[in-house]
Nucleic acid binder design. Structure first.
Length: 285
DNA sequence: AGCTACTCCTGGTAGC
DNA sequence: TGCTACCAGGAGTAGC
C-alpha cells in the first residue's frame, strides 16, 4: 500500500510533468474522491490555475497552485490503498478506474486512478491548515533519536498503533512499521512508555534506514496495485524481512515468522527477534 | 488517553 | 467450474 516511499516516488516522478503546467479543465468520475466539494466548486478552483510546485507531506502529494503568480491554494492527493497518479496522453485509454482527470495545457492529462475509491483529491485554499495535526516527517529534522525516545515515553500505547498514528509520526504505514519494528527487535505490542532510550534509538535508525532504502527502490509492489507513475513496480518488496512472510523463516534467526492482528491490522513478527512483552494490562508502575 | 468496532470500496482468492 | 464469503487496509468516527 502506498506509504511514504511510494508517495514520495509518485511525487518525484510526476513533478517534472506538472510544474509550470496550466490546468484547463477537470473531469470527475467519482464525486466522493473530491471529499465533499461540489464538482462546480472544484472546477472553479483548478481551472486556469498553474501548478507551481509538487511536494509531499506525510502520505499526501501536494500540488501547489498559482494564479497570476499568486498562490492559489493546493490540490492534496492521498492514494490511500489503491490510488495512482499518472500523466498520460489523452489517446491512452484511461481505464475504468479514473476518478479525477485534469486536462493540462500541453495536451496531456493528470489522471488519478483508484480501484477502491478510498483515495482523495482535495482542493484546499490554505493547505497548511490541513496538516496541522500531523506529526513530524520521519526523514525530517524534527524526528531525532531523542525526540522519539521522549515521545514514546510520554505515550502509553502499543508501539504499532502508535507508529501508524499520523499525528505521532507522519508517513509510516502497515508495511514499513512491521519492517522497522523487526529491524529494531521490538514487538508491535510493546508499550511505548516501556521502551528505553537504546531501543528507541535502534527504532529510529531502523525507520530512517528502511524508508531511505525503500525510496531508493521506488517503493514496494507485492500485488497488482502500486506502480510508479511510469508503470514500474517498486523493488523494495524483495528486501522485506517480515511483511507477508508469515510461515517462512526469519532471515536473521531462522524462526518461523508469525502473523497476528494488532489494531485490526495484519502484523508480522519474528517470535525470537521480537520477544513478546510480558502480560501487559494494568502495568501501572 | 487509548482501545475496539465500524465504515468506506472492489478485486482477488480461499473454500466448498 | 461456479458460487459465496471473506480478506486486504488508511484514516475518520463513534462508543466505551
Amino acid at each position: 500500500m502506498p506509504e511514504l516511499p511510494e508517495v514520495e516516488t509518485t511525487a518525484r516522478l510526476v513533478r517534472p510533468h506538472l510544474v509550470g503546467r496550466r490546468i484547463l479543465g477537470a473531469r470527475v468520475g467519482w464525486l466522493r474522491t473530491l471529499g465533499g466539494l461540489s464538482l462546480a466548486v472544484f472546477r472553479g478552483a483548478v481551472r486556469g490555475a498553474t501548478v507551481r510546485a509538487v511536494g509531499r507531506r506525510a502520505k499526501w502529494i501536494v500540488l501547489e497552485l498559482a494564479r497570476d503568480g499568486e498562490a492559489a491554494g493546493a490540490l492534496l492527493v492521498h492514494l490511500r490503498m489503491t490510488g495512482r497518479l499518472v500523466v498520460e496522453e489523452p489517446a491512452v485509454d484511461e481505464g475504468p478506474f479514473a476518478r479525477v482527470i485534469l486536462e493540462l495545457d500541453d495536451g496531456r492529462e493528470l489522471r488519478f486512478l483508484d480501484v477502491r475509491k478510498f483515495g482523495r483529491v482535495l482542493y484546499r485554499r490554505a493547505p497548511a491548515e490541513h496538516f496541522v495535526d500531523l506529526g513530524p516527517e520521519p526523514l525530517g529534522d524534527e524526528f531525532t533519536p531523542d525526540w522519539l525516545a521522549r515521545e514514546l515515553r510520554v505515550r502509553r500505547r502499543a508501539l504499532k498503533p502508535l507508529l501508524l498514528d499520523q499525528t505521532f509520526v507522519a508517513g509510516l504505514g502497515n508495511i514499513y512499521v512491521d519492517e522497522a519494528l523487526h529491524a529494531a527487535g521490538l514487538h508491535p505490542l510493546r508499550r511505548s512508555d516501556g521502551v528505553h532510550a537504546p531501543s528507541a534509538h535502534r527504532l529510529h535508525v531502523a525507520i530512517q534506514r528502511i524508508l531511505r532504502a525503500a525510496i531508493e527502490r521506488e517503493g514496494s509492489s507485492f500485488d497488482t496495485f502500486y506502480r510508479t507513475p511510469e508503470g514500474r513496480p517498486g523493488e523494495y518488496q524483495h528486501l522485506f524481512q517480515v511483511y507477508g512472510r508469515d510461515g517462512q523463516s526469519c532471515l536473521t534467526c531462522g524462526s518461523s515468522i508469525q502473523k497476528l492482528i494488532v489494531g485490526q491490522r495484519g502484523t508480522h513478527v519474528c517470535p525470537r527477534c521480537q520477544p513478546k512483552p510480558r502480560i501487559r494490562r494494568s502495568a501501572t508502575r
